[in-house]
């Protein structure tokens, strides 16, 4: 079966220019990275707000945030993607109609970034909350005693000091979001998995294309690992080994 001709036929299918499907796969990879980056950014923003809200917010704020993180962590991403996609498109369009504008079609990229960002935000809230708690209370109290405003304390003291504790968890979340982009294939968005499925469906070479997509995902995760190892070394620069 797996003789030379089969191998070269597979390579022909993966060639960059048509009739090869390499360009399609790379375009899918580009979309995957774009959505992952966007969702990660949204998630980090929501997570920072959520973490500060959970730690320093009023009781009502804490209960609401608890509801948000619990719901997102208990309902499958696939279901959340469908619910948020339809609900948000509907709400935006109703608001537009009420204001006298025409309905719009929300682009797949924007919807994907928004939905995965909301999911990421719930997990990032928990990661960052734990990291903020690892900052010694004395440091924050000292900064307050110097007369810094809460925002300045966050920017100068809390955020830099929590970084070493936050990075392993945030690296993990990046890995999760790159893989979660695959779920958008189910709603028909052209990211890497969907592109490879289309290529495979046309050529019937399912094994070749899904393997190729897998290799691309693996490369992405290996490269990300390297980058996060660098970032972790950088964030830990000030820390002596062995603690205290």
């Amino acid at each position: 079966m797996a003789d030379g001709s089969a191998l070269s036929a597979s390579l022909d299918l993966l060639a960059y220019s048509p009739p090869g499907w390499g360009a399609n796969l790379l375009r899918g990879l580009g979309n995957t990275v774009l959505i992952a980056l966007g969702a990660y950014g949204v998630g980090m923003f929501l997570g920072t707000l959520g973490a500060f809200g959970k730690l320093y917010g009023g009781p009502l704020m804490r209960d609401l945030l608890g509801l948000y993180t619990t719901m997102v962590r208990a309902i499958p991403e696939l279901v959340l993607i469908l619910i948020l996609y339809f609900a948000v498109t509907d709400l935006v369009n109703q608001a537009l109609l009420a204001m006298g504008y025409d309905r719009i079609q929300i682009s797949g990229v924007a919807a994907g970034i928004m939905v995965l960002g909301v999911v990421q935000g719930a997990y990032a809230t928990e990661v960052l909350r734990g990291a903020i708690q690892s900052v010694p209370a004395g440091q924050i109290e000292a900064a307050r005693a110097m007369g810094m405003s809460p925002l300045l304390v966050a920017r100068r003291i809390t955020l830099p000091l929590m970084l070493p504790a936050a990075i392993p968890g945030m690296a993990n979340l990046w890995m999760i979001v790159t893989k979660d982009t695959a779920l958008l294939a189910v709603v028909g968005f052209n990211e890497l998995v969907q592109e490879s499925r289309q290529a495979a469906g046309t050529t019937k070479a399912f094994f070749t294309f899904f393997m190729a997509a897998g290799v691309l995902f693996l490369c992405m995760s290996l490269v990300s690992n390297q980058i996060f190892a660098r970032i972790e070394a950088w964030a830990n620069k000030g820390n002596k080994r062995g603690g205290i």
Partner: peptide, 15 residues
């Protein structure tokens, strides 16, 4: 851990 479960599933089922 480095590839999406959806891809693994499709690789096994369709592949």
């Amino acid at each position: 851990r480095g590839t999406p479960l959806l891809l693994q599933l499709w690789l096994l089922y369709y592949g």
